[in-house]
Amino acid sequence: MRSYSSISTRLLNGNKLSGSLPDELGNLTNMNRLQLDENQLSGSVPESLANMINVRHLHMNNNSFTGQLPSKLSNLSNLMHLQLDNNNFSGNGIPSTYENLPRLVKLSLRNCSLQGAIPDLNSIPSRKYLDLSWNQFTGSIPSNNLSTNMTTVDLSHNKLNRSIPRGGIYPYLQRLKRKTGIIAAIIIGAVAAVLAITAITMLLIFRRNSKYMHLISRKQTSSNVCIKIDGVKAFTLKELTHATNKFDISIKVGEGGYGNVYKGILSDETFVAVKRAGENSLQRQKEFLTEIELLSRLHHRNLVSLLGYCSEEGEQVNNL
């Protein structure tokens, strides 16, 4: 019989797993990837995971874990990706022992109810990606965490004092381009302006090209609408709810057409603007399908592209 300790990969995303993780997981010493995203797991993350000495990827996003982050995970000398987004940890935030993870490339602890100061991660030579947004971190921004060899840093939506460390990195989402050395920041005002231009252009096209109405292919049920357009994805309401932190009013960036516009981050780390119709401004299905059709046809260097839409449970959402 094959020994459980020889298992090297377990991908259990979205399997509706519940309960707490058993300590016996630490016996899987040959495990190199463990993914438990999108489940209903609760309780604390067991310290025994530190025995999985060969693990490189540890992903447990979108569960209900509580307690403190295990300090012994610093023993995982081969760990490259540690992703625990959207959980409910408590305690003193990130253990200082995580400074001893020599191969850690990506640390993502978005929306985890973490508190305290952000530790100095300068001793991790391979770090490239750091997302600690939507927590309750306090104090100043450790300048050593923001060196130019990093590709992404997001410290937004915390309780930091917003002091700018020498070098000019702000406590908001930043993408650092190593080749050019130019910081490309997401400017919320620009998103709102582009959405306004899109709405005006859409109206002009609609008036001149009503003949395109018959090109819309739809599959209608009592609760949702499906449109088949190349390059346009039908998102689920759950995906967009996660992307916008439950349509949090604090990340609303403006209004466009018939609804509010929110800043969002998809599960593949794509940054989007999400327009959601208000309860009193839902369009008829014909009008909503027309807007999706026309937005999919708009292509200009000054306009954001339509990635997809959602029409579940009475919702009407555009994803730009």
Rank of each mutant, 00 (worst) to 15 (best):
L11S: 06
N15M: 15
T29W: 08
D37K: 04
Q40Y: 04
G43L: 02
V45F: 01
P46E: 01
A50T: 09
M52R: 00
L58A: 01
M60C: 01
M60W: 01
S71G: 00
L73E: 01
S77N: 13
M80S: 11
H81S: 02
G91Q: 07
P95N: 10
L104R: 02
K106E: 14
R110V: 03
Q115I: 02
P119Y: 04
L130I: 06
N135I: 01
N135Y: 05
P142C: 08
S143A: 15
L146Q: 10
L146N: 13
M150P: 02
M150K: 11
T151K: 10
T152G: 04
D154T: 05
R162P: 00
G167A: 12
P171A: 11
R178M: 12
I188N: 05
G189K: 05
G189L: 02
I200H: 06
N209E: 14
S210I: 07
Y212T: 11
M213K: 13
N224T: 14
K228D: 15
D230E: 15
V232H: 11
F247R: 12
S250R: 14
Y258K: 09
N260M: 09
I265Q: 14
S267D: 13
S267V: 09
E269I: 00
E269R: 06
A273C: 13
Q283P: 00
R284F: 09
Q285T: 12
T290P: 00
L294I: 15
S296W: 09
L298H: 07
L303A: 03
V317Q: 05
